[in-house]
Amino acid sequence: MRLDLLKTLNAERAARRACVLVTNTATAAQRLVLADQIASDPLADELETALRLGKSTTVEKDGASYFLTVQVPPVRLVCIGAVHISQALAPLARATGFDMIIIDPRTAFATPERFPDVRVIAEWPDVALPPLGIDRYTAMAFLTHDPKIDDPALIAALKADCFYIGALGSRKTHAKRVERMQAEGFSDEQIARIRAPIGIDIGSVSPAEIAVSVLGEIIMALRKKPLRDDKITGVKAGVAA
């Protein structure tokens, strides 16, 4: 592989843009296809499929064998609320490879002392979120159960089609949240994507145990079939089911 190809590939990933490295496994000839070049590539159909699945694979075309190294952006976890659960979640998220960012306008909560080694933004979500460019490769966990803080970010998460949206709060709290999102014009199908109460039901009690259940739910949304077939619609189907 040429160093310049590898550096471009690394830069695309850092910029959260998908790309595919195509290698002829017999001749070792290679090319890097950026996201906006895929449609005009000779292997356009194969590249589209591999990118949608988010998986590297070998394809055959015109008697030649090509290995496709698929790069999709690294998965991020954005937490609204610099709360006790977020503190427990931070080291778990790091260990499992999620790039975690915490947003909370309450400066008493959003301190570096409470969150060593985590990016904490002490701003309201409407200020903090736009520069982050949340996308379908982003998971969002809403942990304040304060509508003033959660709701603007929840609206942004639904619009951005984040692969996971989970919200803390009782069923009663969530029922009110659903009403507010309906008033914002979101469809029932969109609102059904919000996982609430947040986390897999493993009977968690402590903040650390709740953090485990939240992270488990995020990993399930990311990895579990039918997500392997189609990450995005799969999440929707999973929630609706």
């Binding site: 160093l3 590297s56 190294t69």
Partner: peptide
Amino acid sequence: VKAAQWREAGRGVAIATVTETWGSAPRPVG
């Protein structure tokens, strides 16, 4: 990223990639 850094530091570098798996393989393709 580390591979690129090693190369830029002047080290000889090879990249090995799993291109196909059959049966129970511990690491996925890619």
